[in-house]
Design a protein around this nucleic acid. Sequence first.
DNA 1: GCAAAAGTGTTCGCGTTACACCCATGC
DNA 2: GCATGGGTGTAACGCGAACACTTTTGC
Lengths: 259, 259
Amino acid sequence: MNTENTFWEGLNDCHPGFSVDCVVVTYHKREIKILINKVNRIGQWMLPGGFVKNNEDVDDAVYRILKDRTGLKNIYLQQFHLFGAVNRTDLNINNKILESFSDDLQQMEYYKKYFVSRFITMGYFALVNFEKITLPEKYQDLCHWFSLSEIPHLYSDHNLIIEKAIQTIRQQINYLPIGSQMLPEKFILPDLRAVYEELLGKKLDRRNFQKKMISSGKIQRLDVSEDKITPYPHYYKFLQQNLSLNDIGSIDSKESSIF
Amino acid sequence: MNTENTFWEGLNDCHPGFSVDCVVVTYHKREIKILINKVNRIGQWMLPGGFVKNNEDVDDAVYRILKDRTGLKNIYLQQFHLFGAVNRTDLNINNKILESFSDDLQQMEYYKKYFVSRFITMGYFALVNFEKITLPEKYQDLCHWFSLSEIPHLYSDHNLIIEKAIQTIRQQINYLPIGSQMLPEKFILPDLRAVYEELLGKKLDRRNFQKKMISSGKIQRLDVSEDKITPYPHYYKFLQQNLSLNDIGSIDSKESSIF
DNA sequence: GCAAAAGTGTTCGCGTTACACCCATGC
DNA sequence: GCATGGGTGTAACGCGAACACTTTTGC
């Protein structure tokens, strides 16, 4: 085992046959980016994910894993789908991955029973602020941000997981804290709009968008004076970034109403 | 082991530490009802649920279990939340349940390692038609329909699971096939409205409701002549009951749109 | 100076809401 | 016959969609 072995840390002390995978979504340079990890020795790309410790809540496991990979705490995290098909993973790949992490045959045999078997995985997505991320040293060469259109072929059904995550985000977009999570504290409306446009995959009317956002009462225009010379474009900030963890409450911020 | 042991059927051949629980929702006599099972010998109420076989997709396990308990195939089924807290279940109860199913101490010890341990469970809800249900003989005395306001204290966090299911249904109510799944083929609009009212927990305007439903194009008025004497109330049927399994497509039938 | 992009205001149409009246049913 | 409940129509309102014009920025 080497320094990359955080993937395996205490695997024998983890809940069997179950994993979590996370689609970490961020916005940088007018593009939506997804965090992908690489298993270096066999060149396999996969979503950041891992196992749940025996004495750990499933949600907490995801927070732990993401803290480890991105340095972020207090992120917006949400379950979106359970992937439980029997044949979702080619177990030969698991075998290869296992082999890539250890030359100790006996140890490998030991881990096989934990890892080379059917896994059920819970899919989460996270909305994060690109600027606040600091990839830990040990992962520098293992992490990569892919824009949605450039995602390579991934391990197992991880391409499907991303697809479903984006699908879910699109469905719930009106109830997600897109801007407050993914943009810097100070931002301009064209950037806010770009996030939505990239996520939805379509252009939005600039004028209607700004009207809606401003009238929502969720953002506030910042004073021009601060250190700026040019008045345009205007800068805004979000009011009340009240994110309680494990809160899917923002989904029903809008009354469910048949009428 | 006795005839009640379907709960345990092949437990050692099931995916470890993982279960599925289903909130089966139906409509009968102007009330929303939830199906609850009873573990007779210790008088413990619980949601219908079970384990996933090693060679079985998770979704399929739920279909199998519900077919077993309600006789229904082709029902509308949807994942809604994973319950993964460490302490969600008091394992003493699992022990008691196990004991209630077997007097064979050795067998009990054998099953303990599978059952008296931490479980992660996936919550599903199902929307079913009360009239099509035939509770199998062996479950007759173990199944009960509770109206939402009368649900007793349940096993583990099952009360929470129901709460979250209803919450989810309310959020997604506009995208769920409520009527076509929960009502008989021939139905009257007051019943359709009652289903929505019961689920949402609030009254809806009768006139606006009917206008919306009729103009939706999803229902069709039936001819009066058939065998009826009285023209009022009118009977309707749903057009195209096109339910593909594993389809959460109906959620995004409405375009996700920021505008 | 001119193209590209940011800011703002107005109109239109449709869907939701609110509300009144008529008819059928069944004690 | 009267209360209950079901069926239908109309007017007001509000929000989203469509759209035009001005100002600022930066090469």
